[in-house]
Computed example of a mutant assay.
Amino acid sequence: MTQSPGDRIVARLAERTDGPVPDVVVEPDAEVLARAAAAALVARLAAAQAVHGTASVVLTGGGVGTAVLRQVAQLAEEPAPGQQVDWTAVDVWWGDERFVPADDDERNEKGAREALLNRVGVPAERVHAMPASDAGFDGPEAAAEWYAGQLAAAAGEGPLPRFDVLLLGMGPEGHVASIFPHSPAATDERPVVAVRDCPKPPPTRVSLGFTAIASAEEVWLLVSGEGKADAVASALGGAAPVDLPAAGARGRRATRWLLDAAAAGRLPGAAD
């Protein structure tokens, strides 16, 4: 039987690591990656609703993350049999947010609303946006504390609510959410952290910490582009999370790396 590139890479990773092996899926390019990730996300949310009655997703920004949301919106218009998502019963959270005014184009929330949320009818009370800088908070620390309170209030009996899927992008230096290498957030054990002096503009942000990320049932990393290939290989090769935060992004039940061929180019077996 012929193996896909993702199958070959997982096999090589299994040979070289001792811990649980993440799923690695490789698509030819970013466009195909966005379509495949969208179809998988819709199926996963539909499955969660079949079990729990509701579903929850943590969104990311960035080029691929927003492209996935546009594809999800298209699938919502013509759902496949057995993959209908009731968007009135989906809770939406964010992995990080830029601490800028609400109408700023840098806001992940703004991009997500335009790409998906305004098109599928998620009720306002189920959209849990991180605060904007003009929302009345003194700074990102107060905004982070407030968001942690929202998570706790939604959790019921546990410290954090159920996240069925938590989506993450990754930067070329290996950052995820707004956790950057060797930054205070990389060692902060709080579920939500304020980020100042971020090396990528805008410099002030609010981010989930590793504690919250690790609570998700599944963590999916969406990565495209040759410029991220070295970081992908290092993260999957066992780099320390403080050096390369993407290496510390792991789900409770599953961790999936959804890559295009360029981003997977430095992985063992990628050229087979």
Rank of each mutant, 00 (worst) to 15 (best):
G82K: 07
G139N: 09
P79N: 04
A43D: 12
R107G: 00
P28L: 14
G61C: 09
R12W: 14
T54H: 13
G95C: 07
S56W: 06
L41I: 10
A50S: 13
N118Y: 04
R12H: 15
V25Y: 13
D29A: 14
P140D: 07
D138C: 00
V58A: 10
L59A: 10
R98C: 01
T54K: 12
E77Q: 10
F99P: 03
R107N: 01
R126Y: 02
D138A: 05
S4Y: 13
F99T: 02
T17I: 15
P140C: 04
T54S: 12
F99C: 01
V26C: 13
D104M: 01
M130F: 07
D7S: 13
G6E: 12
A39N: 08
A14M: 14
E77C: 08
D134P: 03
A38R: 08
M130C: 09
L33Q: 12
R35M: 08
E77N: 05
V10C: 15
V64Y: 14
V42M: 03
A36D: 09
A76V: 07
P20E: 14
G139H: 08
R113M: 05
L41R: 07
A112Q: 04
T60Y: 12
E77T: 12
P123Y: 03
P79W: 06
A30C: 13
A67W: 13
E145S: 05
E27M: 13
A112T: 07
N108T: 09
E78P: 05
A132N: 08
D96S: 09
L13G: 15
G53F: 06
D86F: 08
A143Y: 07
M1P: 12
V24P: 15
L75W: 04
V122N: 00
V10R: 15
M1Q: 11
T60R: 11
V90Q: 02
E141R: 03
N108H: 06
V92F: 01
G82T: 10
N118H: 05
A76E: 07
E97N: 00
W87T: 02
N108E: 09
E15G: 15
E97I: 00
R126T: 01
W93L: 01
V72W: 04
L33C: 11
V10S: 14
A38K: 06
R113H: 06
M1D: 11
G61R: 07
L45N: 04
D29R: 14
A142E: 10
H128R: 05
V21W: 14
P123E: 01
E77H: 10
R113V: 08
F99G: 00
Q49S: 02
G136Q: 06
V32S: 12
W94L: 00
A142W: 00
